[in-house]
Simulated assay, not measured.
Amino acid sequence: MYSFKNDYSEGAHPQILNALIETNMVQEEGYGEDHYSLQAAELLKEKMGRSDVAIHFLTGGTQTNLTAISAFLRPHHAAIAAITGHINVHETGAIEATGHKVLTVNSGKDGKLTPAGIQEVLDAHPDEHMVKPKLVYISDTTENGAVYTKNEVEQLSTFCKENYLYFYMDGARLGSALTSSANDLDLSDLPNLVDVFYVGGTKNGALLGEALVICNDALKEDFRFYMKQKGAMLAKGRLTGIQFLELFRDNLFFDLAAHANAMATKISEGIDAAGYGFLTPPVSNQIFPILPNTLLEELHQQFNFFDWEKVDDEHTAVRLVTSWATKEEAVDAFVESLKKKVTE
């Protein structure tokens, strides 16, 4: 049974595994002070065209979000996120567990935040009797597979600056976003638009690892202390450094993401040809087709995927996720199953 449940079912790209094996017996400093991690950080800075950013390697998305957000906020501060945002629905209250409330915005089917939606939250929290909104959280891609345009990020950036809000981008699937046909952002744009973002490796070919990029000077001080306190400072920091060095030494990071998107596009085209629609337009490696419940019963016997949202009594929106390792023959088999049902 082939899985379209997520983009981290497989281990890691062979190039990364080979690099880990080849460097395995080399003695290195710990806690991210090894020369692989230092070199990877410099390489990322070069790719972004910014030598002044601070880069820290952590192991996973939730760990990165809770470590960073709790480090940047004072005790009475809160984060603002889409109601579908990862920190609100898929992190077991990790941000709240650090003492910071997550204030939500009803962001619609695409899961995007807008200045107008954020303004409503600010208006509802006017004084010291409530938490103070201080950080705006978005993810690119969103939880619903949408991609932010450069203009949308610029508008959010301007709004955050005008309202003294930190602007934070979750980049767990940033590779998919930046290689999407709907995208017009470059990696080098992000340090100029957001205060903090991270580049996700776990969901794009690495065994594990996220590269947190702190662009705002005011947020850089003592961050390694916060990492250590939250259990986010890996003793064998070389493991993440080596992986990001391999991902960005050439074009591997973007090649892997482009493959995931291409496989999702092929599935989407097959679903469209079969006459089925989508909950949100398919533009990334997460797609959300609306399928008859009778068809789902058959598909679940051949493929693993999530039933996402009930649309009506007879139809359900499902989530299909492709990855750097998705096999084209598995995509073809899924599309063929749809065609077979239509012709019956």
Rank of each mutant, 00 (worst) to 15 (best):
S3L: 11
D7H: 12
D7P: 03
A12N: 02
A19C: 13
L20R: 07
T23E: 10
N24E: 12
E29Y: 06
S37K: 01
Q39I: 04
Q39G: 05
A40M: 09
K47M: 04
K47F: 00
M48H: 05
G49C: 06
R50G: 05
V53S: 01
A54K: 10
F57L: 10
I69C: 10
S70F: 07
R74L: 13
P75K: 02
H76N: 15
A78W: 02
A82L: 05
G85S: 06
I87R: 02
A97K: 12
G99V: 11
T104Q: 09
S107Q: 08
K112W: 08
I118F: 03
D123S: 14
A124C: 04
H129N: 10
V131H: 07
K132Q: 14
K132T: 15
K132E: 12
E143W: 02
V147W: 00
V147R: 02
Y148K: 05
V153A: 02
Q155L: 14
Q155H: 05
C160S: 06
E162Y: 03
L165S: 13
M169W: 00
R173P: 00
R173E: 08
N183A: 08
D186E: 07
L187W: 01
P191Y: 02
G200R: 03
E210S: 12
A211C: 12
L212M: 12
D217C: 06
Y226E: 04
M227P: 04
K228S: 08
K228V: 01
A232M: 14
L234G: 00
K236F: 08
L239H: 11
G241Y: 04
L245Q: 15
L245A: 06
F248V: 09
L252E: 02
F254R: 00
A257R: 07
N261R: 11
K266C: 08
I267Q: 04
S268K: 05
E269K: 15
G270L: 14
T280F: 10
V283Q: 01
S284M: 07
Q286S: 10
F288M: 15
P289K: 04
L291T: 11
F305Y: 15
D307R: 11
H315N: 08
H315M: 06
T322A: 01
T322S: 07
D332G: 08
K341S: 11
V342H: 01
T343I: 07
